[in-house]
Write a protein that binds this DNA or RNA. Structure first.
Lengths: 307, 307
DNA sequence: AAGCATTACGGCGTACGTAATGATT
DNA sequence: AATCATTACGTACGCCGTAATGCTT
């Protein structure tokens, strides 16, 4: 490839920084000390710069330096280059190291309200330089387009291998119903009893009515398809329906913790378990993340470890 | 030499320019085309920059680029770097190519009034963007300290070999006197007759009263020391004294042209000549001079060639 | 004599191009 | 199929350090 002459801005920049340092110091050797290079290197840079610009920038008389008119003018620009570069570095370091700027977190409304907000609330409060932006949507969002720093998602939807994911916690699924419902319907003592019951479907998986039950003691697995006449894509609605005694729901443990404690809902088939989900935090890249992202992931991880 | 990490401003600058171009274009390949390098080079620059900064600047999804928060901030700085560099180059090119800015010319008051001003007056008038600064002093001036672009000096004081000099013209020295003086004093027909005359010394050379006369026809040289009771460092004063009949003066032809034409002074010993001076224009460096300096030298040269 | 700038020379690093790969439309 | 980004790899130029030289105080 023949680069006839002058690649415009690409070249020179190094020389400009050296030049700015030289003028600022008033000497080649002083500049060299500042830059951590030899006076030889400085001299060569200046010479090369002058050759490229086709003009003498400073007259040297061994003991004194004196800017030419062009040099004086160019010095202003060189100073600007250096200061802009420094500003950029400073700003980037801030954004990388300090808990400041913005942090964009995507999740579903349910996960957000019940888990993410509680997990981060004290941390958020402790860092008021940080502006946190929650994008709570049920539909898929493009992390790049929406500039999401952290998405919290359920397994196993990690098909995008460009993303890196951090497992936060196993999320057990439970089969629950209201005590009222259970009193009014046939007892459930083994998986096959389920066929006489209604399932209120939360459409998280493709075949929501098919249950894969594993006997806790023996590990024996059973697949069973329940009848289901009510469907919703919303956990709140499903739990409400269940509390009102309309049927069983397969639901994540975290989403019904309060109801289980209060007795508004109770688990059925306690000797069996449904396949767990894994709750993942997902980021766009694993390496070289700003501190706020790393810290937020840590906070999330710790929160789910202790709950 | 161990450069542990990060040489502050010296590095990165290239990468910053590339980064600015990439963001400005919205693509690596577009930037590559603009910069005249391959996308490979662009990719490597960005990667290297990100590694050095320790932060991801932009997320790439093959078809789309998206700045991270740090990237967005850094982009501002990168733009500033590039635009400062461009401004510098533009300004320097102006000062190099256009007849604008300032031009500092040093000479003696006599040379200035009689020769430099006439030589440059029309040229000056034709370029009103050019501000010309005449430093007319009899004492020595440091060209670097005073930021002189062009000095006009007499030979042979070119002892400073760091300077480059352009011969403008030979300046003949003449021995002249007023007609009145010549009528009232002994005839001068050969060099030895001079011993009976007075020389009004203009102190340009070290031994102003010693004349080296060369016979025009034969080339035979004669050295003679004249008496001298009047001294001055000023040509005007000397010519005035001569016109008033106080003695002979050894003077440059250019300085007494008018008087010779009007007959106020006449040359003596026309068959002999004094050693010529050479009038030099002197600059600080020979290469890579701004256009205005080169042009000014040309104007001076042409002026003296045609006079 | 000491400090400074310039130059030549040589070595090391790195910035680049080529080519192959994978991703996206 | 076409365009785009990334990566590995080899090369060549560029940057820099060493050392010698010259200049200034």
């Amino acid at each position: 490839m023949c680069n006839s002459l002058g690649e415009s801005m690409l070249d020179n920049l190094r020389g400009m920084a050296v030049f700015a340092s030289v003028v600022g110091h008033g000497s080649f050797s002083g500049s060299a000390r500042e830059l951590g290079i030899t006076t030889s290197a400085v001299s060569q840079q200046i010479r090369s710069l002058e050759n490229e610009l086709g003009v003498v920038l400073l007259h040297r008389s061994t003991r004194k330096l004196s800017l030419t008119e062009a040099g004086e003018s160019f010095y202003e620009a060189a100073k600007d280059v250096v200061s802009a570069a420094e500003q950029g570095r400073i700003r980037v370091n801030q954004l990388r190291d300090e808990l400041a700027g913005s942090l964009r977190i995507a999740t579903t409304p349910e996960l957000g309200v019940h888990h993410i907000l509680p997990a981060l609330s004290t941390w958020m409060a402790a860092h008021d330089d940080l502006s946190i932006n929650y994008l709570a949507d049920n539909h898929y969002v493009d992390m790049i387009d929406e500039r999401i720093d952290i998405a919290v998602r359920m397994s196993p939807s990690i098909d995008d291998h460009a993303l890196s994911s951090y497992p936060l916690t196993d999320v057990r699924q439970l089969l629950v119903a209201s005590p009222q419902y259970l009193r009014q319907h046939p007892k459930i003592e083994s998986p096959k009893d389920l066929s006489e019951h209604n399932l209120i479907c939360i459409e998280l998986t493709k075949d929501p009515a098919i249950l894969e039950l594993t006997q806790t003691e023996t590990g024996k697995k059973t697949r069973i398809k329940m009848q289901s006449r009510m469907h919703t894509n919303n956990v709140f609605m499903a739990t409400t329906l269940a509390k009102e005694g309309h049927g069983l729901i397969r639901v994540m443990e975290m989403d019904v913790r309060k109801e289980l404690e209060s007795g508004a809902l109770v688990e059925v088939l306690t000797g069996y378990k449904l396949p767990s989900f894994v709750l993942y935090a997902v980021t766009l890249s694993r390496e070289q993340q700003p501190a706020k992202i790393v810290r937020c992931l840590e906070v999330l991880k710790k929160y789910f470890q202790t709950n």
